[in-house]
Amino acid sequence: MPESETGTPNVSAPATPGTPGAPLFTSLRVDSLSYDRKSMPRCNNCFSVDSFVPGHSCFTDFPKPDISLTRKLGAEFVGTFILIFFATAAPIVNQKYNGAETLLGNAGSAGLAVMIVILSTGHISGAHLNPSLTIAFAVFRHFPWVQVPAYIAAQVSASICASFALKGVFHPFMAGGVTTPSVSIAQAFMLEFIITFNLMFVVTAVATDTRAVGELAGIAVGAAVLLNILIAGPATGGSMNPVRTLGPAVAAGNYKGVWIYLVAPTIGAVTGAAVYTAVKLKEDDVPQPSRPRSFRR
């Protein structure tokens, strides 16, 4: 303990510069947009004016351009393009070459596409790839509502671009990639609701719960997609995603039952997220794991 010149212990010695006595940040917030559970929250959205305005750390009247959002939208566009192109190409190839892909090939192509996109862009944009998932994340405050329109715009535009690319490559076999129901409207609606519920239940677990095995997120979500298409593919095409249906429908000019694929997946995704949120363990039920998490920047 430091002493004064008289030899009396100095109990109020100043702290070493740069080492505050209390934590700067008292909590962390999980952001499903980027699967980032490690980075500390900090203000990067405004210009620093510490030297001009005492007691203030930033000046919000002049915000910086949100370059981060631009990159996320770019990654979301590319990821959705890859998903739609390969998930739609498989049934088109199946049609063109007389069943060469089979149902298992169609399901595997979509599952693998989801897996590689999550593993490659999940740390940038969160790899939503699906307006229904984006809306469900926003409903449960894992994603900011203000960014929802931009994300959906990126997803829809990527789907349309991928679909017209497929039309140019595989013309005139585009019809094979359109998801249309081969069962009644009620059956198709329930199937799309259930399989999207299953998908979002898994996504919510690996994207928002720190106790889930986040390192296997891509495999888990890809496997859920594969399983869903194996069951629902012959009946509805196994869309689970409004833009999986919308882009090919626009390119092929076939809008049969398109409303089912816009409404049922959205309701199913919100329900799936709600159910997992209801059943997941509370923060104080078990200790936090010490193993590293995936999808960190």
Rank of each mutant, 00 (worst) to 15 (best):
residue 1 M to A: 09
residue 7 G to T: 08
residue 9 P to D: 09
residue 16 T to K: 14
residue 20 P to F: 05
residue 25 F to C: 09
residue 28 L to N: 14
residue 31 D to V: 08
residue 38 K to I: 10
residue 41 P to I: 08
residue 42 R to T: 13
residue 58 C to I: 06
residue 65 P to L: 10
residue 67 I to W: 15
residue 71 R to F: 14
residue 73 L to Y: 09
residue 77 F to Q: 10
residue 78 V to L: 15
residue 81 F to I: 02
residue 84 I to G: 01
residue 84 I to S: 03
residue 95 Q to W: 00
residue 98 N to Y: 09
residue 112 L to K: 02
residue 114 V to R: 00
residue 120 S to D: 08
residue 123 H to R: 13
residue 128 H to V: 00
residue 129 L to T: 05
residue 129 L to A: 06
residue 129 L to D: 09
residue 132 S to G: 07
residue 135 I to Y: 02
residue 153 A to R: 09
residue 155 Q to N: 07
residue 160 I to Y: 04
residue 161 C to N: 06
residue 165 A to H: 01
residue 166 L to K: 09
residue 172 P to A: 08
residue 174 M to S: 11
residue 174 M to L: 14
residue 179 T to I: 01
residue 182 S to I: 01
residue 183 V to N: 03
residue 184 S to H: 08
residue 185 I to M: 12
residue 188 A to F: 02
residue 193 F to G: 01
residue 199 L to W: 02
residue 206 V to I: 08
residue 225 V to D: 08
residue 230 L to I: 10
residue 230 L to Y: 10
residue 230 L to A: 04
residue 230 L to S: 05
residue 234 P to M: 10
residue 237 G to F: 00
residue 241 N to K: 05
residue 245 T to C: 04
residue 246 L to W: 10
residue 252 A to C: 10
residue 258 V to T: 11
residue 262 L to I: 13
residue 264 A to Y: 03
residue 271 T to N: 05
residue 274 A to G: 10
residue 276 Y to A: 03
residue 282 K to T: 12
residue 288 Q to T: 14
residue 290 S to R: 14
residue 293 R to T: 13
residue 294 S to G: 15
residue 295 F to M: 12
